[in-house]
Nucleic acid binder design. Sequence first.
RNA 1: GCGGAGGUAACGAAGCGGUCAAACGUGCCGGAUUCAGGAUCCGGUGGCUUAGGCCUUCGCAGGUUCGAAUCCUGCCCUCCGCACCA
Length: 931
Amino acid sequence: MDWNALEQKWIKAWNEEKLFESTPDGRKKFFVTFPYPYMNGYSHLGHFYTLMRVEAFARYKRLRGFNVLFPQGWHCTGSPIEAAAQRIREKEEKQWKIMRDMGFPDKEIEKFGKPEHWVEYFPVEYRKDYERMGLAIDFRRSFITTSLNPRYDKFIQWQFRKLKEKGYVAKGRHAVVWCPKENTPVGDHARVEGEGETPQEFVLLKFRFDDAFLIAATLRPETVFGQTNLWVGPDITYVKADVDGETWIISEPAVKKLQEQDHAVRVVGKLLGKDLLGKKAVAPMIDRDIPILPASFCNPDKGTGIVTSVPSDAPDDYIGLRDLQRDKVLQQRHGLDAAMVDAVKPIPIIVTKEYGDQAAVKVVEDMKIKSQHDRAKLDEAKHLVYKAGFYAGTMGVAAGKHAGKPVKDVKDVIRDELVKKKQATLFYELTGKVVCRCLTQSVVKIVDNQWFVTYGDKKWKKITHQALNKLTLYPEKARQQFDYVLDWLNDWACTREYGLGTKLPWDQNWVIESLSDSTLYMAFYTISHLLEHVPVDHINDALFDFVFLGLGNVPSVPHASEMRKEFLYWYPVDFRNSGKDLIQNHLAFYIFTHTAIFHKSHWPAGIGVNGWVTVDGEKMSKSKGNFLLLRDLPPKFGVDPSRLTILSGGESLDDPNWDSELARTVSNKLESMHEFCVEHHDKGRADVKAIDKWFVAKLGQLAKECTDAMELTLFRTAIQKGLFELQSVLKWYLKRCGIPNKKAINQYITTQILLLAPFTPFICEETWKAIGKEGFVTNAAWPRGKEAKPEDLASEDVVRLVLDDVRQVLNIVKKEKPARITLIVADTWKHDLFKLLSQHKTIKNPGELIRTVMATALRQHGEEVTKILPKVMNKLPDALLTAEIEHAALKDALDFFEKEFNCPVVVQKESESQEPKAKQALPGKPAIVVA
RNA sequence: GCGGAGGUAACGAAGCGGUCAAACGUGCCGGAUUCAGGAUCCGGUGGCUUAGGCCUUCGCAGGUUCGAAUCCUGCCCUCCGCACCA
């Protein structure tokens, strides 16, 4: 089949008819959206799956009579485009390679040095791809984001002014990864080293030391009660510095870090670690004198280069202490008093079931760690101790008023107490080394004019929960995750100093960050095609207030009333679908923002989430070479087969798998489906046989099951029912019916085309037309189906079962050409028994069931009943036939059996049969004798 | 570690207390048709079996039950997220 020609033909036809340009009318509406993709590369298979879920749902709803709106915008906000452009300009190898891999010649790549070029280039390509895939999108409403689109820009400004009015935008302090040379934050994309590293909160403990403080950084403030000593590196140079009016002793590199974190630091002197050894300092919280001892693991680049020692709960400290206590030479070299060193003993502070009250000691001894140089083992030990201590431990008596409480509950309390007493202060350190693109090592900076959207606001959370409770989730089981996320979300830094976007209206130094500008824009779709025709200077807050909130009089702006009408008609969004990874940010933000700005009736009505695409069982990645772009699909597989394949790959939250093999074979399947329909339409006999009724009942049943699946966006199941099962039912029918019944086969054909239409619209249009239907199948009416009654299917079930069973028998006896086959229908008393059993389905105990049966006239077959009952009690057919009907059904199928087995077939009743096997017969399962 | 979703035959994936050796699809094997087929059709695809049966399987180990892939407990493994990034 020439898929390409077919696709072009129908895309053209749809476009000419403006099929997907949706306008408000009297019908019920259905509004779907796919989050606008980011314009820094071509659309790929991952998009395609999510997109197809939206598309299939949209087309299905259209068939169900809804006026469907499916718009699509293009996202350009944020730093990746700008960063990539910069890398192009800087001729960075990696970025150039990415562009070459996308198929751009070097001359073209140059152009991508300008961020604007990305924004001009990719939306066009995306539209081509999406149109090519047959997506039912109203492209009149497409737009790009950022200030490059002044209308959208104004909308985002309006949105942020609204949020601020409501008190949901606030200024605050924020720790960021910072380049001290360029004086900018260093995002992941701008790093040559250290992707994924983030600022981590440390507590700086202050140890009184004469008129100064020794400063030690810790991640575990709750362990202050077990401090026994301090560690310094004997050969490390420390500085004495004036910090915010106090004198601190810290390592040299710590000075710069503190300065970036809002501390006034002035170095006043230097000293070596060994100068401090043997002296004592007063430990915070416990107010005790503790000695200063040497350790090899002190690192001037980490924290302050001074470490507080808690040997009970820090393996490093314990082993450091043990090493030192055993090493008299070392003690002497540093002039340490042996008695003092030996007097240092771990102090139990945290109790865990696994490790008792001195976890570090226990773990180090258990693991037989030899010295502080055994890094790998020590790290493992640290991990074990921390895990047990923090999550499962409780504070011991040494913790005073905190004794008996879970560690994870009091950690922050103790930290705050220390800070309040001015015995500690907070400090941020990177989780790992980060190097900026300018090759400078990054630090943590506290920015105090950062803007936040206050998702941490309790009242706002409560309202958002209400919105969540009201909306439909596809699938429902994602709800728990949503609920959790709404509670867990905290204030979100919503502005950047760098990147494309909309400037924060009241603070032009900031650009609104990409996840923050994409929370309300679905409303923009309802008016974007009209707003296009409004001069930019007419667009202001009053207009948006009117259109989206119904505030004020009709502004004297072209289309103002019409825009209001569009918004009221289309909103809320009925289905917004994305990958499950977006639950914790985008989708949550989306609900939040809607509740903040829009009326309740415009809050999201439905959200879908889905898994991550794999390709032929493997994760899709560029390095594996299995990275499929949308544009690769049509030439390789055809659009319809691709659409069907991607949705067959999985559903719900599972990761769907793209099966290339299926894509190839399904193409043939669709083609023969088409040929069959064309060939058989409106042909056949007029008289109605039992098998025709069965077929029609099955068609109704499958259409019903398919419909149920569609409603839940279980598209894999829908395809299963609507294509594969329907085909196998058809096959059986054709095998059984002789010449098909005209009405039945016509019903099959329309059912088949319509059930497939949301998935494979091209071939369906073609078939639809070929069988002489008017108009587009895209606009036809969906067959909702009808549940079949089991008794309508039961006769045929017997025939199918007999066919299978005879085959099995023939297989076992290895007889290929039987001389004759006898089918024996069970006695009426067995049918009575089955009927009785089906009335007592609730009785699950065989003994009780036998007793029940024996209480009836069936007692006269007592012996046999006892024998067969346990075997059959759980295998009753869906519907029971009488012996007569079963007999008739088999007789009716004699021709069929004889043809299938190529031998004479006879049907008998058990009572008239001479065959010894006759008594094996059961209702719905005749005895079989092959000769 | 936490929150969520999962682990089923060669693979993808249904099933979620009894009709389960387990739908459907792909792959594979055999047959038919064909000059030919990556086309179509038919049959097979855990093991044993000359009568529709039996045996072993649904991450691992226990348990509940007359009965467990399905329920409970513990453990192991995979995926998503744990943030200021799209």
